[in-house]
């Protein structure tokens, strides 16, 4: 059902008003419902509100001003925008809003670790590329800390994985 007022967005708020013993029902979108103050609102459950609520909750601990300023450098989505829409702009948003999303995911989903399907083709390639990146960071740290034994070990692993990825990459993509 479309919103009676703007006839554009989905009506998610169903409100009832009683004037002179006459009942009037209205079906509005969240936006239009917020614009009015003459109705008693019976809010229906909405994913957007749920996410917004959870975000607020999880922010009561870390500095909220800072979170509000968070922005995805890949697509330009601002954190405040995400909070309003409940929709992310791109896959990188998950990284840029990682700190805010973590607690939300645990609360909505009860977990923050995927245990299901892994893309067969791209997946193993992708996962190993990520592994490679992780080893490289670790190698840098190991060198800084002068943990040369660990560094040598990592260097060998990186080399082997890079070779494996190279030989696959030629055929695949």
């Amino acid at each position: 059902m479309l919103c009676q007022e703007c006839k554009e967005r989905e009506a998610t708020v169903h409100v009832t008003k009683i004037i002179n013993n006459r009942k009037t029902e209205m079906h509005l979108c969240e936006y239009c419902a917020r614009q009015r103050d003459d109705f008693i609102q019976i809010p229906s459950f909405s994913v957007n509100d749920l996410i917004a609520g959870l975000m607020d909750f999880s922010h009561s601990q870390p500095a909220p001003e800072k979170a509000a300023l968070a922005k995805c450098a890949a697509c330009g989505m601002e954190y405040s925008q995400f909070k309003k829409m409940g929709r992310l702009g791109c896959q990188k948003c998950y990284e840029y809003f990682g700190r805010e999303l973590g607690p939300v995911l645990r609360r909505i989903q009860g977990s923050s670790q995927h245990a299901g399907k892994v893309p067969r083709q791209a997946g193993s390639h992708l996962l190993r590329k990520k592994q490679l990146a992780r080893w490289k960071t670790e190698l840098k740290r190991a060198v800084e800390l002068e943990a040369y034994e660990r560094a040598a070990e990592l260097r060998d692993k990186i080399k082997a994985l890079e070779q494996a990825l190279d030989s696959e990459g030629g055929g695949k993509r």
């Binding site: 896959q91 989903q109 923050s112 083709q121």
Partner: peptide, 25 residues
């Protein structure tokens, strides 16, 4: 589809979706 298309996938979070309520599987 996966044979021709590379999906947005995250090691820890699984398949990345526009709404966080669908992420994972």
């Amino acid at each position: 589809i996966e044979q021709k298309v590379e999906y947005a996938y995250h090691e820890q979070l699984g398949y990345l979706t526009c709404c966080p309520t669908n992420v994972g599987t």
